[in-house]
Design a protein around this nucleic acid. Structure first.
Lengths: 155, 155
DNA sequence: AGCTTAATGAAAAAAGTTATCAATAAGGTC
DNA sequence: GACCTTATTGATAACTTTTTTCATTAAGCT
């Protein structure tokens, strides 16, 4: 069977290559794991998950891989409601994340003009010149809404 | 001279008392320091600043004071653009912070309805039920705008 | 002023992150 | 496909940050 070069599949590998970085084992493991997990993961969690699934690698490599992947925008930092932070795969372009307070899954939503009126107001109020922002939403994902409603019914 | 009970000055002390906590030295030192500093400070920075200004206290107390003060909403966590976090005094009510990318001073601005259309859009798109959010703006404060413009002129 | 107990401080343990350097492997070349 | 160059890795250790423990102190009530 001929090997198919999948554009989607090779995307992040290309970003590495095009920036002069090698597609190494640890970088592959980390990306593949994050692609398969909606929950933000800490370096330690990533290290443990990979070790258990037969991909022994040093935790140092996890830190280094994450640092690089974050720099290239291939992974993003997501803050949990409790303030702890983890990594998820990065969606392309300007975007933010919404995190489920129950199961912690994080999904991306596109950034938009929606903030511009707020930013204008704040610039006027504070005389700051605004150039960037950090935004995350917290809530309950569809699955957990259902699960929680079902649990409620049983009482 | 009669001692004047200043409502503003005693406000955070009251919050502590009313919640059954004592107004202890370390808690006072931490609050006073943060009230005098616009820049978010880490526990270590707070510890060092207080030690140097003749208020020797254990760093453990700094951690404990911050934990409690944050729980009571008297201090807030602010994230720097680089991802590091620090504490600032908490403004009352629903608010967010805007942080200067140059001098790191952080000031609060009132939360508002401005996010509701964005939130509605995301709820529709993702089927999440949104109940909270994390928002911070980054930019250049008036002082630094001026300082940077002056520095530019000199070239 | 005295009492009760929350809160502190010091030390140690635990957890998380970074630096060092010899060994390895990714990716280009022949 | 084997070889070569050098980026990258892994193990260890150093370092930083945070939490735990417990005897001592002091805040605030009576």
């Amino acid at each position: 069977m001929k090997k198919v070069i999948n554009k989607v599949e090779t995307s992040w590998q290309n970003v590495l290559s095009e920036n002069g970085y090698r597609v190494s084992g640890p970088r592959r493991y980390v990306m593949q794991l994050l692609e398969s997990n909606a929950q933000p993961m800490t370096p330690l969690e990533i290290y443990q998950a990979l070790s258990q699934s037969g991909r022994p690698l040093g935790i140092v490599s996890v830190y280094r891989a994450l640092e690089l992947l974050a720099e290239l925008g291939l992974v993003c930092v997501v803050y949990n409601p409790d303030g702890s932070a983890g990594y998820v795969v990065g969606a392309g372009g300007h975007h933010h994340h919404i995190v489920c307070q129950n199961c912690h899954q994080a999904i991306a939503f596109a950034g938009s003009e929606d903030l511009s009126s707020l930013i204008q107001r704040v610039e006027k109020e504070t005389k700051f010149h605004v150039s960037d922002h950090l935004l995350q939403l917290y809530g309950i994902c569809p699955d957990c809404q259902k699960a929680l409603a079902d649990a409620e019914e049983e009482n």
